[in-house]
Amino acid sequence: MAASDLAILADVKTWLAGSSGIGSTDDALLSRLITDVSGAITAYLGRPSLTPRTLTERLDGNGRMRLFLSHYPVLQISSLAIDNVAIPAAAPPATGAPHPLGYLLEPWDGLPPGRPQALDLFELSFRRGRQNVVAAYSAGYAVEGEGATVPGAPGPYNVSVGAPFGPWASDAGVTYADGVALTAVAGTPDAGQYNVSSGVYGFAAADAGTVVLLSYGFIPAAINNACIEWVAERYRYRTRIGQSAQTVAGQQTASYSLKDIPDFIRASLDPYRSVVVG
């Protein structure tokens, strides 16, 4: 499975199974189709990644007090500079009080598909210039701080993510309820450590009964389903290459779409296409 895949082989095979089932003969073919279709979807959406990643972006100053970053949903701004001058973050003011000097990001509501978020300046402006605004930030679909309790003895001490908006795709860290971070390990965890595979987090017996907060990237369900269905469509297409219709026993005619992207796939993806805001 490639890191950029938007679906897993088991889900595609479940979709294809029907009443006749599907074996493992074509696993390599289906895996290749998943990777190919995932790339096509990413290109169509105009997004380099759907899961959280760190980005550094240079933008043209517009002389105004607001601009929009290219990638969303934005999770956090690490730094902002204008004409090589660092700009501080401005905490939201108390009710009725003026905004303090600095920048403030419009928060994401946590729900996909999301939209471009405003980055506002107070007592300043994005001075006009070519690539004179540099923003470092993290963006991508993520659940942050999902609460869970590590099971008690005798174990196993595993927690599965809730994944309310789509399947787990990447780990973004675990903390205790007080904010102290746990360390990710590949092997068996000790106290204060965890491991993770496919959305299942494993902990040490020493942490049994402890409340933890899980953060992770996810693939929005609509995109995940679109990938599964498009792969299935391409897989079935090989038995009817170039056919737009087929008559069975001279009585029943089946019609097939030959569009580059099936309409039902496009309808699922369009709300997630990257939108450029001036």
Rank of each mutant, 00 (worst) to 15 (best):
residue 170 S to T: 15
residue 59 L to Y: 03
residue 220 P to H: 01
residue 47 R to M: 08
residue 210 T to G: 01
residue 75 L to H: 01
residue 95 T to Q: 14
residue 255 S to M: 05
residue 6 L to E: 03
residue 247 T to V: 15
residue 100 P to T: 14
residue 242 G to R: 12
residue 237 Y to F: 10
residue 75 L to K: 03
residue 39 G to W: 05
residue 52 P to I: 02
residue 40 A to S: 12
residue 255 S to D: 03
residue 222 A to C: 06
residue 255 S to W: 08
residue 151 P to G: 06
residue 75 L to M: 08
residue 118 A to G: 06
residue 163 A to T: 13
residue 235 Y to A: 05
residue 67 L to Y: 07
residue 34 I to H: 04
residue 43 A to Y: 08
residue 133 V to L: 09
residue 65 M to W: 00
residue 52 P to T: 02
residue 33 L to H: 05
residue 113 P to Y: 05
residue 200 V to H: 08
residue 116 P to K: 06
residue 18 G to M: 11
residue 33 L to M: 13
residue 113 P to A: 09
residue 80 L to H: 06
residue 260 D to V: 10
residue 32 R to V: 06
residue 176 Y to F: 13
residue 254 A to H: 07
residue 256 Y to R: 07
residue 91 A to N: 11
residue 153 A to Y: 04
residue 148 A to D: 09
residue 136 A to L: 00
residue 183 T to G: 01
residue 25 T to A: 15
residue 236 R to H: 10
residue 215 S to F: 02
residue 45 L to A: 10
residue 21 G to P: 03
residue 29 L to K: 13
residue 59 L to P: 02
residue 176 Y to D: 02
residue 214 L to N: 02
residue 66 R to F: 04
residue 91 A to T: 12
residue 207 D to A: 08
residue 234 R to W: 14
residue 113 P to Q: 06
residue 40 A to I: 00
residue 78 S to L: 13
residue 214 L to W: 04
residue 140 G to A: 08
residue 247 T to N: 08
residue 193 Q to C: 06
residue 63 G to K: 10
residue 184 A to G: 03
residue 249 A to E: 12
residue 156 P to G: 09
residue 31 S to T: 15
residue 79 S to C: 05
residue 43 A to N: 14
residue 51 T to V: 15
residue 216 Y to E: 01
residue 54 T to K: 11
residue 107 P to K: 11
residue 263 D to L: 11
residue 95 T to W: 10
residue 274 S to K: 13
residue 166 G to I: 01
residue 79 S to E: 09
residue 17 A to P: 05
residue 117 Q to A: 10
residue 150 V to G: 02
residue 84 N to M: 11
residue 269 L to A: 03
residue 2 A to Q: 11
residue 277 V to S: 10
residue 60 D to K: 06
residue 11 D to V: 09
residue 108 W to Q: 07
residue 255 S to Y: 14
residue 151 P to E: 03
residue 144 E to A: 02
residue 115 R to G: 02
residue 203 F to E: 00
residue 277 V to Y: 04
residue 240 R to N: 12
residue 200 V to M: 09
residue 105 L to N: 02
